[in-house]
């Protein structure tokens, strides 16, 4: 039943045997020790489990591990290899997170946006992160942090 998959995780090759119905989030968190994607709902509704698949944000809680065979997966652990990103610094500056549970998913989604579109307007920012839920902040400071980065560079 198990099947071996190979993929690139944060730049490094990974080879692992998975069950056909095993979720990517569980493989990352429970088997590969990559803890920044969070389990919030298990149904793709909250965005806490967001990771990048070939640079595109996906919900790892509803993605089967076998689907990423041969692909590239990036999590916060990969983006931080040279220290905090500009976006993370801006989130700190703007007090854009409180408990921090949604922050990995939120910043990855914003990372994807800024890569595609380095200078989005506020409407585009709102649209990009509309699927990521945050219960603490009321979103305003999150938008401000992304706007700030979008004005630089």
């Amino acid at each position: 039943m198990k099947r071996e998959i190979k993929f690139t995780l944060n730049g490094d090759p990974v080879k692992i045997e998975v069950m056909p119905n095993e979720k990517l989030l569980d493989v990352l968190r429970d088997r590969l020790g990559v803890k920044s994607p969070k389990h919030g709902c298990g149904r793709g509704e909250c965005g806490a489990c967001t990771v990048l698949l070939n640079g595109k944000s996906i919900r790892s809680c509803i993605t089967l591990a076998i689907e990423v065979d041969g692909q590239e997966i990036t999590t916060l652990e990969g983006l931080e290899k040279n220290g905090m990103t500009e976006l993370q610094k801006s989130f700190l500056q703007h007090n854009s997170f409180q408990c921090g549970f949604c922050a990995p998913g939120m910043t990855l989604t914003a990372t994807e946006l800024l890569k595609k579109n380095p200078h989005p307007d506020e409407e585009e920012i709102r649209e990009a992160i509309a699927g990521n839920l945050c219960r603490c902040t009321g979103y305003k400071n999150i938008i401000d942090a992304i706007v700030d980065v979008s004005k630089k560079g």
């Binding site: 652990e77 700190l92 910043t107």
Partner: peptide, 20 residues
Amino acid sequence: KRPSAVERITGKAIFVDDIR
């Protein structure tokens, strides 16, 4: 500056489900 803010924004903060 918020103590532990860097841990949280970088996804390094340990929540219960991160403990094994």
